[in-house]
Simulated assay, not measured.
Amino acid sequence: MPELTVSKRVTFSAGARGRRRLEPAAEPKPSAPPPLPRITRLMALAIKLEGLIASSAIADQAELARAGCITRARATQIMSLLYLAPDIQEAILDLPPVTEGRDPVTERDIRGITAEADWGRQRDLWAQM
């Protein structure tokens, strides 16, 4: 009959009455995935909040601001991302995770685009970024 060898890292700890207690070694924790850009998270938040307002779970942006402990102006800034053309919203949601350095697109970069009402002009401004 062939021999079978099993290897596993273990540690011993002191138990009651000086006995040694066998404990399995801690498994390495998987590393967290790199974070998504902040603008991506804000775009997703704006879509979620729009759904809450549409379903009447939250009455309006003023109630939203109170519930989120933010100012009405900040709530308006976040919700203004919904004025972007659908393809720009999709591009923002599809931005890759940030592995090093700063976010490639910031909310401040997007504010000028959200102020533009014409989607064609928005697309031109987005392409320039």
Rank of each mutant, 00 (worst) to 15 (best):
R9W: 00
R9L: 00
R9C: 00
R9F: 00
V10F: 15
V10W: 10
T11D: 01
F12T: 09
F12W: 02
S13A: 14
A14P: 07
A14N: 09
A14E: 15
A16L: 13
G18P: 06
R19H: 06
R19G: 09
R19N: 12
R20S: 11
R21C: 07
E23R: 07
P24N: 10
A25T: 14
A25S: 10
A25F: 03
A25C: 04
A25D: 04
A26G: 06
E27W: 03
E27Q: 08
P28H: 08
P30N: 05
P30G: 05
P30E: 12
A32R: 15
A32G: 06
A32L: 14
A32S: 08
P33E: 14
P33V: 06
P33A: 15
P34N: 11
P37V: 15
P37S: 11
P37K: 14
P37E: 14
P37N: 11
R38N: 08
R38D: 08
I39R: 07
I39G: 12
I39A: 14
R41T: 00
L42V: 12
L42Q: 14
A44D: 13
A44P: 00
A44K: 15
L45D: 04
L45E: 02
A46D: 03
A46C: 02
K48Q: 00
K48V: 00
L49V: 04
L49W: 10
G51P: 03
G51N: 10
L52M: 13
L52P: 00
L52K: 11
I53Y: 04
I53Q: 06
A54V: 01
A54L: 05
S55L: 06
S55W: 04
S56T: 05
A57Q: 09
I58R: 09
I58T: 09
D60F: 08
Q61G: 08
E63D: 15
L64M: 11
L64G: 03
L64S: 02
C69Q: 14
T71R: 02
T71F: 01
A73Y: 01
R74D: 04
R74K: 14
T76Q: 08
T76P: 00
Q77D: 01
I78G: 06
M79N: 13
S80T: 13
